[in-house]
Simulated scan of single mutants.
Amino acid sequence: MPPPPAPPQPGPPPGWTPNQAVPPYGPRSPYGYAPNWRPPKRKSSAAAVIGGLTGVLAFVFVAIVVASAVLKSAQRHDPVSPIALPTSTFDPTSKPSTSKPKSRPTGKDSTSDKPAVTLNRGLKNNTVYRAGSLAQPNCPAGNASIYNHAQFKTLILKTGKCMGQAWAPALKRVGIEWRPPGYMIAQRRGRGACGDYPSPGSNVPYYCPSNSTIYASTSAMAEEYGPLSSWNGVIISMMGHEYGHHVQHLTGISESWWRRYQESSSRSGQLALTRRHELQATCFGAMFMRAVSRSYPVTVARRDTLLWAYGHLGDPPGGPRDHGSTRSNARWFRQGYTRPKAYQCNTWVMGSSYVS
């Protein structure tokens, strides 16, 4: 049965003029992440290797062309509809399997009789897909200015806390251990465990799995997102994308992705895997925006702004195909927002045309 037609595509946000465009986010490194990061010379453990090698899972969309080009692009691309993901590989309503550990015959030293949860940390059948919807925290955004470092930093930290309040209950109920990420927010530039932030030539925040920290520069983001400053939801959704990488890290998805990335013998295969990884983080970020839609609030007009923006964000022509086309980014943001259950963000079971 064909999917229902998508609603009319929203227009640009208020204040957008034909000569304005969000500039590209800057060059990627040969690895697709932080230009200053290199693999560690010494291996200490599997976890450290994975943490170091993944480096920065930056939300490096590249962006909006001038309005005339946008209009031409809109004419060339059909509206996207949410995806009806198959549930044949798992039952999203089932509970994780449990097993009762055997007690040791040593009295007080016996193990607990509490059932141990068997987690799936793979890509297609990960336990997170049974988590369902996110909690809906009370998270009013206020009127923070992105041009004021203190206000912008407070907004990032406040909404970051809300992201934890949304994700933690969902993960805990399926037995996934929860811990919040750290934050390093600089006014201009800084240096973290995965290199400089922002990365040279870039402006976006990034997540560093080696220390579970999100890094961001308020001035870099404000400089690039001035045309969208009438509402900061686009920026917060980008932070939600980085938080999505944290969820992938906690659930084992990032580890499984990186293992397959290393095993791939072709560059095109590696890029295809990375697109699935990034588009899933976008879907997870959209789930959060939906979770706070009442209290943030995300009005109908603001929702339309988000959908419009993600319909014009994606890999640049001639650049690395590691974050997905504008069509794919629009599809997966809409997917997470309109079908906000974790299994609806399972990019790993979809055909290549859905993650192009």
Rank of each mutant, 00 (worst) to 15 (best):
P140I: 05
G252W: 08
H245M: 08
S295F: 04
P316V: 14
A84S: 08
P24F: 13
Q20W: 01
L279M: 07
A69M: 12
T111F: 09
S45I: 03
T106F: 14
V174T: 03
P40E: 11
Q270I: 00
P169A: 01
P320K: 15
Y147S: 15
Q20G: 03
K153I: 00
P4M: 08
P86L: 03
L171P: 12
Y183M: 12
S68I: 11
R130G: 08
N203H: 09
T305K: 01
R321F: 12
W231T: 05
P35A: 12
V204L: 05
I185V: 15
N329E: 12
P96S: 07
P7E: 01
K114C: 11
V49E: 13
S293D: 01
S325W: 12
N138P: 09
S256W: 01
P169R: 04
F284D: 00
P181Y: 05
S237M: 06
Y33H: 14
S210Y: 04
H77D: 14
I236F: 11
A286Y: 05
P18H: 08
A166C: 03
S212P: 06
K108E: 13
S45M: 09
V355Q: 04
S212H: 14
Y310G: 06
G226N: 12
H149D: 11
R189W: 04
V349T: 15
R290P: 03
L271C: 00
Q151T: 03
R173M: 06
A301N: 01
A170E: 01
P115H: 10
N19D: 15
L57T: 11
A48E: 14
Q136D: 07
P317E: 13
Y296Q: 00
S254T: 11
S103Q: 07
A74R: 07
H77Q: 15
T106W: 14
V174F: 05
P92Y: 09
P115L: 08
S45F: 06
G240M: 01
G314E: 14
V56M: 10
G32P: 12
P86T: 15
V70P: 03
P79S: 09
M239G: 00
